[in-house]
Design a protein around this nucleic acid. Structure first.
Length: 520
RNA sequence: GGGGGUGUAGCUCAGGGGUAGAGCAUCUGCCUUUUAAGCAGGUUGUCGAUGGUUCGAUUCCAUCCACCCUCACCA
């Protein structure tokens, strides 16, 4: 019996028979019906007088004068009651209830509104009033369908919660989850704030190559691509550093770039293979100058976004108002463990690390051991904004040696809520020192470190012309946005995060549409 | 890459060796101040994919895929 059924299914079911297709077909039929009545379900424009938010703010005077106003937005809810409708209309600014009565609009418009589906985009004209239950509402006198929606919306109450679907179909996420829109508005505002801040400080916004013959400026595996015309491999940039330095050599005092970078590495809640950094370079300044600039910029940005300096992040409250803590990497380790690594040789440091259960056998130099100790014992404690400074030279190939200690560099990283929010140095401008560091990196690469930096000849050449003393800073925009918007996954601050190809066998909507058109 | 979890209708979720249910959406009625409107009735599913066990698998087993959490590495 079941065999028989399967057979018939397999034989007859070359057609698509899924409920979604039925839902889409109902809406498609409405499109045809409108077209038969010479009504364009996809008209060209609509002149609205108000955004909903502004009309609500100005409600009293608009209602009293019965001013005729208009909105354009998407129908999110619809309640039919005999010869009237209430519906929720949402535009980019707000939601409002609209009220459609049969005796207030033309018969044709009433019929069209009757056929309106959740998700349709409409223009409505009318005047503001208050319902019995006290809700500010637009009484509609004229109505126009602006775009017919063919695809059903997610559930009107529970919305779209499946994280995978939210990322894969961000448009649906944005339609039904307005708070997601707000996060990305804040992202935009944060970038705008930084841009304004740097412009006001006379930093020049520049653009440098994303497609590069040689990558560098950070420790990461690059994306490789191929340029047919030149018959050669090219790389997507992993950082801006080396190009911005060339511009400092060229004579600009202050440059910065909002840079999309690409790193051929894993995906997790802190990493997306393409991400956004801001890098800035400041001639005749050192890392302390840069720290002050960075700190003030962040403090002002937090206040501009939130109107206050204390903001929640997860369990914690981050306070941007007090002067950020400034502590050297070695001192911070000493505070947490009582051990002063500055006194120790490479071998002693290794065995000391083991006493603290830090695996050090594979660490090839003193700097790497210090870094491992620090990551294990100090980094998880850094909730409030903290500059960790003066990193070992071995793990800082582009930073200038510390003026007081050749084992260290003039470098800081800022930590907030235990993760890194920026990385800066007094930039290395001695071409001989820089070349030697590159050579060290080359050895690391030969030893199997596929994130080591290759030697950039042109960068060395540039430095031989002379780069003034310069401070450089790079910080992750995505992470800054995460902290300032209290988001805990990079995927919630990037519109279209990288996703693997879907494993499900779902029928693409285009196929459903093709089938429906075919049947017409 | 290791460990744990999840995958059932357009959406949110229950269920369970005899091929499936709820709410919302959708369709048909009724209702001119409702609001997750209400009332009455109806439609809807390759139960993530592929194999195996079984008379029979959506359910049990194995493998794979995607997503989430976590550990290791990079920002």
């Amino acid at each position: 019996m079941s065999d028989e059924k399967n057979r018939t299914d397999n034989n007859s079911d070359t057609e698509i028979s899924i409920p979604l297709a039925e839902l889409i077909k109902v809406r498609r039929d409405k499109v045809l019906e409108l077209q038969n009545k010479n009504i364009n379900p996809y008209p060209y424009s609509y002149k609205r007088t108000h955004h909903i938010k502004d009309a609500i703010a100005d409600f009293d005077s608009l209602a009293e004068a019965e001013t005729s106003i208009s909105f354009a937005g998407r129908i999110m809810l619809k309640r039919k009651m005999g010869k009237t409708f209430f519906a929720d209309l949402r535009d980019s600014s707000e939601r409002i209830q609209i009220y459609v009565r049969k005796d207030k609009v033309s018969d044709e418009q009433f019929d069209i509104f009757n056929s309106v589906d959740l998700g349709d985009i409409v223009g409505v004209e009318g005047f503001m009033f208050t319902t019995k239950t006290g809700e500010k509402t637009l009484k509609v006198t004229s109505f126009e369908l602006l775009t017919k929606s063919l695809h059903p919306l997610p559930d009107k109450h529970s919305g779209l919660t499946d994280t995978e679907q939210r990322y894969r179909r961000r448009y649906a996420d944005l339609i039904v989850n307005p708070e997601v829109r707000d996060v990305f508005r804040m992202r935009s505002k944060i970038i705008q704030m930084v841009r304004d801040y740097l412009n006001n400080k006379d930093f020049l916004e520049v653009e440098t190559p994303i497609l590069q013959p040689m990558y560098g400026g950070g420790n990461a595996k690059p994306f490789k691509t191929f340029y047919n015309k030149l018959d050669r491999d090219m790389y997507m940039r992993i950082a801006d550093e080396l190009y911005l330095k060339r511009l400092i050599v060229g004579g600009y005092d202050k440059v910065w770039e909002l840079c999309k970078d690409f790193r051929n590495e894993g995906i997790d809640r802190f990493h997306n293979p393409e991400f956004t950094m801001i890098e800035m370079y400041w001639a005749f300044a050192d890392y302390k100058d840069m720290a002050e600039l960075f700190e003030n910029m962040l403090r002002d940005t937090v206040f501009a976004i939130h109107g206050k300096y204390k903001i929640p992040y997860g369990e914690n409250e981050i306070d941007f108002e007090p002067k950020f803590r400034w502590v050297s990497m070695l001192d911070s380790i000493k505070e947490e463990t009582g051990v002063d690594f500055s006194e120790l040789s490479y071998e002693d440091a290794k065995s000391k690390a083991k006493e603290f259960h830090v695996e050090s056998d594979t660490l090839i130099n003193w700097g790497k051991v210090v870094e491992a100790m620090w990551e294990e014992k100090v980094e998880p404690t850094l909730i409030q904004p903290t500059f960790i400074t003066d990193y070992p030279v071995e793990i800082s190939p582009l930073a200038k040696k510390h003026r007081d200690n050749p084992r260290l560099t003039e470098r800081f990283e800022l930590f907030i809520s235990t993760f890194e929010m920026g990385n800066a140095f007094s930039e290395l401008n001695d071409p001989v020192d820089q070349m030697e560091r590159f050579i060290q990196q080359g050895k690391a690469m030969e030893a199997g470190d596929d994130e080591a930096q290759p030697l950039d000849d042109d960068c060395i050449t540039a430095l031989t012309y002379g780069m003034p003393p310069t401070a450089g800073l790079g910080f992750g925009v995505d992470r800054l946005v995460m902290v300032l918007t209290n988001q805990h996954t990079i995927r919630d601050v990037v519109f279209f995060p990288q996703m693997k190809e879907t494993g499900d066998g779902s029928v693409p909507v285009s196929k459903i549409l093709a089938q429906i058109i075919d049947d017409e």
